[in-house]
């Protein structure tokens, strides 16, 4: 057990973190380096303002669309907000960042809040994944990579919660190991949308704004 722990907290941790950072930065940089031609037509509105606007306005779907995708929006928010709260405010996580990455910590949430938030996140994730499986459109669109992403996240979250008893080192290590696998998988998958969404929204917002349309 000790050797496994030493491996996971030592070399393997550095390896997975490196793959993550290099992968994410590299993938973004290479995509962006393809460049695009600058628009020569007389703009009807400011493209850069439109870009910023779209990054934020896309968090709220338009009314006509919302009526059609209510379930997806609610489940989507439940999962994503839940995940980020867990990622940044769960006591064990902050402890980990403090010890291995940043050297400092910040206030964390109490245990009961942790549980409630993870329940919300789980409900959201399960519904989203089921929708991916059961809706004919997303079923056809999804490839193995998408399912691996969902399932990996699910098991990372699950093992994290199963380790809540904090009385078995093995449970904690399983969680850590899965989280590291996730880090390695991340840059090769559509989980990249965590970062790319800023750019893709920015681009479309700029394009529409150039034409005088708020998107």
């Amino acid at each position: 057990m000790e050797t496994i722990a030493a491996f996971l907290e030592g070399p393997f941790w550095y390896f997975s973190a490196a793959v993550f950072v290099v992968g994410v930065v590299g993938r973004l940089a290479l995509a962006l380096s393809l460049g695009s031609s600058k628009s020569l037509s007389v703009p009807r509105g400011s493209a850069s303002a439109g870009a910023v606007r779209a990054v934020f306005s896309r968090f709220v779907p338009r009314r006509d669309f919302y009526r059609r995708i209510r379930l997806e929006v609610i489940a989507g928010y439940a999962f994503h907000v839940g995940l980020f709260v867990l990622l940044f405010f769960a006591a064990p996580h902050v402890e980990f960042y403090k010890e291995y990455i940043l050297g400092f910590g910040w206030p964390t949430m109490p245990r009961w809040a942790f549980i409630v938030v993870s329940e919300i996140a789980f409900a959201g994730l399960i519904v989203l994944w089921l929708r991916r499986l059961l809706h004919p459109v997303s079923r056809k669109l999804s490839d193995a990579g998408d399912h691996i992403g969902s399932i990996l996240i699910f098991f990372v979250m699950l093992t994290g919660c199963l380790a809540l008893g904090e009385d078995h080192e093995s449970l904690r290590l399983i969680h850590l190991f899965l989280a590291q696998l996730l880090l390695i998988y991340f840059p090769f998958s559509s989980l990249m949308h965590t970062f790319t969404f800023v750019f893709s929204r920015g681009y479309i917002g700029a394009g529409f704004a150039h034409h005088g349309v708020k998107a």
């Binding site: 993938r27 973004l28 290479l30 995509a31 962006l32 380096s33 393809l34 460049g35 695009s36 031609s37 669309f65 059609r68 995708i69 997806e72 991916r132 809706h135 459109v137 997303s138 669109l141 999804s142 490839d143 998408d146 559509s190 990249m192 949308h193 790319t196 969404f197 750019f199 893709s200 681009y203 394009g207």
Partner: peptide, 26 residues
């Protein structure tokens, strides 16, 4: 034809299929 925007777009798509709900053909 794949410029930076399309490349980013192809990377960013999460295959959620919500776009279908906007398309009159679907």
């Amino acid at each position: 034809g794949i410029n930076a925007q399309l490349a980013i777009d192809l990377e960013a798509c999460v295959h959620c299929g919500l776009c279908a709900e906007a398309c009159h053909f679907y």
